[in-house]
Design a protein around this nucleic acid. Sequence first.
RNA 1: UGUCCCAUGGUGUAAUGGUAGCACUACAGAUUUUGGUUCUGCCUGUCUAGGUUCGAAUCCUGGUGGGACAACCA
Length: 567
Amino acid sequence: MNTETGIEAPKKSLNFIEQIVEEDLANGKNDKRIQTRFPPEPNGYLHIGHAKAICLDFGIARRYGGICNLRFDDTNPVKEDVEYVGSIQEDIRWLGYQWKNVYYASDYFPQLWELAVDFIKRGLAYVDEQSAETIARQKGSPTLPGTESPYRNRPIEENLALFEKMNAGEIEEGAMVLRAKIDMASPNMHFRDPIMYRVIKSQPHHRSGTTWKAYPMYDFAHGQSDYFEGVTHSLCTLEFEVHRPLYDWFIDQFQNSDYRPRQIEFNRLNITYTVMSKRKMLQLVQENLVRGWDDPRMPTICGLRRRGYSPEAIHNFIDKIGYTKYDGVIDVGLLEHAARESLNKSARRVSAVLEPLKLIITNYPEGQVELLATENNPEDPTAGTRQIEFSRELYIEQSDFMEDAPKKFFRMTPGQEVRLKSAYIVKCTGCKKDADGNLIEVYAEYDPLSKSGSGTPESARKVKGTLHWVSIAHSLPAEVRLYDRLFSVENPAADTRDFRELINPDSLRVITGARVEASLKNAKAFDHFQFQRTGYFNVDPDSCAEKLVFNRTVALKDSWAKEQKKA
RNA sequence: UGUCCCAUGGUGUAAUGGUAGCACUACAGAUUUUGGUUCUGCCUGUCUAGGUUCGAAUCCUGGUGGGACAACCA
């Protein structure tokens, strides 16, 4: 998949929604028009679950030559904020999609009002002035029918007058609502005279200000908005399945042509070791349990972006998980795999030593500096090479040295040869410790004939291990942030404990003393790299010339670590 | 003692009445100047009981298990 040009990868089989769309097309439904919409409520940042919906909504339109509009579902001024409108648009664009039009449900307030008035005039709606508690009680339960409101058969003129008052500011919040007159005994709870309008006076609307005091509810606004816009396929998640009969009912009351939008529900995205609810994410942010909506541990689009995920990685992931009606939980390993798959092809390989240990090449001339050529990306022949500095004093990774090593330890240990990546083969000769037995430095001798790429028999020698390194004098200090899963249990949502108690205390580990190669000096925010043998990293926006800051997107697979765990 | 939805290896997803396949994971091996990548091999699956059919993962019925619905949220 190429998100830049919008070319989708060829697919072997259709998901159930694509099948419906193709059938509709084959049957000439809606004049063979395909129109979808992405309808976020501007009350939070988009997350990977939204990305799944975005890929479907925009993807269907793109694939079948239709259009997809962005519609902000802003019918509740209490919860919504302009703050989110911009970030939502930015995230959609970043994913590689462009909407045909931007709409706001609030743009339809006049039309919806007219429609509601029409419902009243036709005896399909009434103003109820009971309290929320009373209305809830009368609703019955899923197994018990409800009872009718005493206001249910109010004269039409009275309903019209009260509805006007609701919007004129003459009625207090909670004092009156407009309800559809359907069936209080319906086995579907949503048919028990659902609320169409409520009064909100405490908060101005982010777009319409104080023009309106009565605001439509989701069930009355959403389907009608779809209808006004000409949506043909209204795709949403499974929890709206029970709403569909009501969605259809409202439209049945006024539609006057063959056209009608069709709601289709698919499964929500759940991923192990994270939470996908806006409410919980908001809590994480507000209670400073993470550093913001774009904290790299968050499953938000901006968090994943800051973490170093590419749009391609997210598309790869979404393609792998598919769309069904089965409500499962995706292994976060699949998301990580998608990141590696994408970054492996694109990330420039660089040397970075996270936990430095001094290595002295005792037979290398003091003061000498050599420039060595090294590949930028072995997976991409067009990526070319660059020069790196080699000298007598280097840093290697602490974990790459062991004084008493097991047989399978193919790294630096006294008496064993290893290759220094793109440089020489060296043989460890010993190490030095302080009075407390702490390792200070390691010594090795290099084989001058073994220079990488020199073509000598010595350079072609088979050596078990290859280590990454940086020249001390030429390396740059850096802060490196290592992330792990935010939660320590697979499914925080299913846990009985408060989700905040389940946060992984080691989800962020900051390394301040890392050393990286000189070529990273001018790396810019969001540039991504592979730190050789370690993982994929990108430059955090906190980074500056004085202090480079990197985020670990995802570690490389590590079969040595696996081996050690077994032991 | 309601309505609606769902059930295929550990996870996710195909097969639309005709050989249960793919991806991830795990495991084993080959290659490798990243213990990465790549390649090969391999384990594991149709919730259950009936029925229809020459033939059922697929259609029907009953069970079992899971989920959604009782906001003046979306």
